[in-house]
Amino acid sequence: MSGEEEENAAELKIGDEFLKAKCLMNCEVALILDHKYEQLQQTSDDPTSQISQVFEKSLQYVKRFSRYKNPDAVRQVREILTRYQLTEFELCVLGNLCPETVEEAIAMVPSIKTRGRAQDDEAIEKMLNDLSLIKKFE
């Protein structure tokens, strides 16, 4: 992994380990943590004592910032975004922030324009449209 100084998410320099890892959108994390929370409640009498502060804060956070609540919609979002040759990290930033315009999307994920990929404005616009459709029909 490269040094701490070189880290820059805008250029996708996030270390090999994380670049290859599976990224999770906030809505996906919400599903996972909710499920785990329910499991804990069933297996122990005092679930709050087993839950770390990190877990609690994360759960609150992802619930507050989940764009999609319904598990089917979450699956569709990932499905649609994977069609556009994005890296995991880019996919999740887009899924989390749901930019509305092409300009905004490029500001949020500058790396979709660099690296010589054939990602033109039209393709990005189509992608954003697809995303907003899911939101509408959820």
Binding site: E7, K13, L33, V54, Y61, V93, N96, L97
Partner: peptide
């Protein structure tokens, strides 16, 4: 496991 790792240059929402 699920980890949360902030990166320099990352854009996110916060309270």
């Amino acid at each position: 496991c699920v980890v949360f790792r902030p990166f320099k240059g990352e854009i996110l929402e916060a309270v």
